[in-house]
């Protein structure tokens, strides 16, 4: 399944947040979106997932979702968004309950996704008993449970410390190698962007426009071993962003 964003513009009140954004997330492709703070990345992702209506343009999907996909466009949130009153397995169960799946099959889906995210031992734990990294793995398990075609990830690793982030990034890469999901991955962290992205969409400061799209041809699984080459790429993306980021920083401090 493909996600096609067509000439998307959006404004909040008087301020234009996004201007004429167009790009496509192809089947099995991870597209990273980077850009200075406040340039509208989260807004763009909300529009892509149908949580917000764009002022102009359209978010489209093409192609049929894979067999058995319950929620083709599925989010992973920065703050995990787990229900604190439900255990790990019940948090996963939440997103299956509305689909009329019978209890036995639900159990087996839950057991399967928890096993795939190494959470089988924590099925009965409450979110507050888990570390940040484990909570995000629960959120990933929950997303996997609905068999998404396209994952929409809004800074999924930013709330984690750098070691945990590194581990979870490896998990994501392993997962992607197995399942080949497509993803739209918003991040602040250029290292994450070059490690995960097939393409990196660099947005300008507000109003967010596409500054440049950087293509990375290196296979995901090889990237951990070729950090040197990625380093140069990362520097290139940073060169593109630097002026924008500085200006954006100044804008925000003007407001404050």
């Amino acid at each position: 399944m493909q996600l096609v964003l067509q000439n998307i513009s959006h404004r909040y009140g008087g301020t234009t947040v996004l201007e004429d954004i167009s790009f496509t997330v192809d089947d099995g492709e991870i597209v990273c979106i980077v850009g200075p703070s406040g340039c509208g990345k989260s807004t763009l992702l909300r529009i892509a997932g149908g949580l917000e209506q764009p002022g102009a343009g359209a978010a489209l999907i093409s192609g049929a979702p894979p067999e058995g996909s319950l929620n083709p466009l599925t989010y992973i949130f920065q703050d995990f968004a787990l229900l604190p009153w439900r255990t790990v397995e019940d948090n996963v169960s939440l997103v299956l309950e509305d689909h009329g799946i019978e209890r036995r099959e639900r159990r087996s889906i839950i057991a399967d996704v928890l096993a795939r995210t190494n959470l089988a031992d924590f099925a009965k734990a409450l979110p507050r008993q888990l570390s940040g990294g484990m909570r995000q793995r629960v959120a990933i398990a929950r997303a996997l449970a609905v068999k998404p075609a396209i994952m929409l990830m809004d800074e999924p690793l930013s709330a984690l410390d750098s070691q945990t982030r590194e581990l979870l990034m490896d998990d994501l890469i392993a997962l992607w190698s197995r399942e080949r999901f497509s993803a739209c991955y918003v991040t602040h962290n250029l290292n994450e962007a070059v490690r995960l992205g097939r393409r990196i969409v660099v947005l300008s400061r507000r109003p967010g426009r596409i500054r440049e799209v950087v293509e990375i041809d290196m296979p995901l699984t090889e990237r951990a071993a070729r950090l040197g080459e990625l380093e140069t790429l990362q520097r290139r993306v940073w060169e593109i962003m630097r002026e924008e980021a500085r200006e954006a920083d100044r804008e925000i401090s003007d407001v404050a």
């Binding site: 949580l51 466009l73 599925t74 989010y75 703050d79 968004a81 229900l83 939440l94 509305d98 929409l152």
Partner: peptide, 16 residues
């Protein structure tokens, strides 16, 4: 609000 957004993003019904 994020939890409500989460529910909507997974296609939960209003009643759910």
């Amino acid at each position: 609000r994020n939890l409500i957004r989460m529910g909507q993003s997974f296609g939960l019904s209003w009643l759910s």
